[in-house]
Design a protein around this nucleic acid. Structure first.
Lengths: 344, 344
DNA sequence: TCCTGGCACTCGTGTGTTCAGAGTGCCAAA
DNA sequence: TTTGGCACTCTGAACACACGAGTGCCAGGA
């Protein structure tokens, strides 16, 4: 009886669902009596108590102390998300509002900024949006500008509207004609290609220049390759940290590690990096690798201009969050951002 | 006796200084007895009590409740900052560390990112750094790139290393020769000039082109002027919000409005905007216009590559902060950032 | 076999009381 | 003008206590 993996019957699942819903709503441990009052389960409190005892034995719920109500555990939320919750679709007016808000954006920075604010507002939690990644995007244009005799500004423009610039210190003076030639040759080969492929396509380029110019060419190319490869420079935008204070006064001390985690771009990038490419990822409590986020859940999803995702976005909230609503909002926002990016 | 503006004698000032120092250190109201024990004032507690009564009557300190110690008021901190505190210079090792940390930066973004983290760490408070403003900087180069027959990418590079790009939709097809001509003419006139002067210098440019090309030229120029004038797009970087939790548990509820204020770029920009151009600005408690920051102090200062400041930076902390230390750190960091910018 | 009502038990929370300590204000004396 | 003394105030901690919510278990019934 004990320890065995028990097949939970429908009513036990219904009880768990009810517990999660009530606890998310009230933020207070929920007892058997209150449960049968608010949900018409068709059974008496005593029956529910038996089910609760079973659920607790299996680790889905937990009692803070004897004679208190029950609280879902991470495992309980996991079951809820996997089998009991439906993603709650946004209402038509909400969808219109999202659409309208994002349509006002003027450039990539603005799209990301608006997205993250929107997400924070919709979910009333902390929102995170990763800038479209370089590695999946393609080259729209590469520009070389002579700033000084031996200084060249390199500008890389991608199809997602992202611009990277690098200052190149050349070994010698750079002639304008050489620069023009190089610019033309690079663009002919690279435009429209994905960033990671570009280095391979430009390898034979130095050989086409006179020996005297080759050091310059290789220097410029080296910097370009660096810029192309620099995936870890991926930026992230954050909003809604003020919502942390709403997390409830039951664990206000835990707010500090969360704030610390949010300041570490690396942590956030890794967090989003763990998102599956397709579908939505929900990491609950201790499922998160970073221990500062052990009492939070992360809902994240990829978004992109076409079928493929070029970056991730998500929200971070207490494990006790409204999963269906949050997942609905995250999915809807990701979808619309993708559309916006595809249009521009 | 009462209500009159009283000239505070030296000992009263010493008492106020001692109160501020102790309160900042202990975060607890400070009483007369503890005061004479920790600072050798050469008088008895009773005397100090008399002085305290006078200071309270004049509004420099305040009692949370009868029979509690005294706490400095905003006015008290103001007097302390204006007349009693010396900016505490950084030690030589600290200065070296600052220098070394900032020297590692590779581009403007990195300089700002490092600066803000450094400042947050040094002061253990929330740090804010404004990107070097466009209006004070000068044009290093303006580049025009044809992306498509009727699409031009405009890139503006300033002497502070900042890059602004704009996508221009032209009324008709743009010839490469026209573009080259325009690029040359713009750069001849604009390079080295301050951004606000540039529009005036380019006004007569359309007249130098053939009638057929004028719509394109004016469109490009209009976008350029927009980019030049866009001062409110000034960006800000933030770090150290986790330090808010250290603010002390005496007003943990006030953390929310502060977080909200920090999320509003507009608020932060206005905050820094109020900084005097020369010298350091300290805004204490209710001196801050934004009411969410009524229980915080803002220490800010301008920084720049030369003599003039091109942007501001600062820290936000509880009114009960270590003013001499904070001011020293802010000043030192601003100075070194200025140097870094001047070198690059 | 499963559900239900009843009952005794546990334990956290909120309330009221007490007590010690810190700090003050005031006064008279030096 | 400073000082020591003294009575007074008030907060915060510690403690006791009652209340109530919630549980586990058991015996009886469908």
């Amino acid at each position: 009886m004990a320890g065995e993996v028990r097949q939970l019957d429908d009513r036990k699942l219904a009880v768990l669902r009810a517990i999660v819903q009530d606890y998310v709503g009230t933020e207070e441990p929920v007892g058997s009596k209150a449960l049968v009052e608010r949900h018409n389960l068709g059974v008496s409190p005593a029956t529910v108590r038996n089910d609760m005892a079973a659920l607790e034995e299996d680790g889905y719920i937990h009692q803070p102390h004897t004679s208190a109500g029950r609280i879902p555990t991470d495992k309980g939320y996991r079951l809820f998300v996997d089998r009991l919750a439906e993603v709650k679709p946004m209402s038509a007016p909400e969808r219109r509002a999202i659409r309208h808000f994002l349509d006002g954006a003027v450039d990539l920075d603005d799209v990301v900024a608006r997205t993250v604010r929107l997400l924070a507002q919709l979910t009333r939690q902390v929102a995170v949006v990763q800038y479209p990644s370089l590695s999946r995007s393609t080259v729209r244009h590469i520009e070389l500008v002579a700033l000084a005799p031996a200084k060249v500004m390199l500008v890389l423009i991608t199809n997602t509207g992202r611009v990277e610039q690098r200052l190149v210190d050349c070994p010698g003076t750079v002639g304008e004609t050489v620069l023009a030639d190089l610019r033309a040759k690079i663009n002919t080969r690279a435009v429209g290609r994905r960033l990671p492929e570009v280095p391979g396509l430009l390898e034979e380029l130095p050989a086409q220049f006179e020996a005297a110019d080759r050091p310059t060419v290789t220097t410029v190319l080296a910097t370009l390759f660096e810029a192309l490869a620099e995936q870890n420079e991926e930026r992230i935008m954050l909003a809604g940290t003020a919502n942390l204070t709403r997390f409830g006064h039951d664990f206000p001390l835990t707010i500090q590690p969360v704030l610390e985690a949010l300041e570490e771009q690396v942590v956030l990038l890794r967090l989003l990096g763990e998102t599956a490419d397709a579908g939505m990822t929900v990491r609950i409590g201790r499922e998160n690798a970073y221990e500062g986020l052990n009492s939070t859940s992360v809902v994240s999803v990829g978004y992109g201009s076409g079928d493929e995702s070029v970056a991730k976005l998500g929200v971070i909230g207490p494990t006790r969050m409204d999963y269906p609503g949050t997942m609905g909002a995250v999915r809807a926002v990701a979808r619309y951002v993708g559309q916006i990016l595809a249009e521009s």
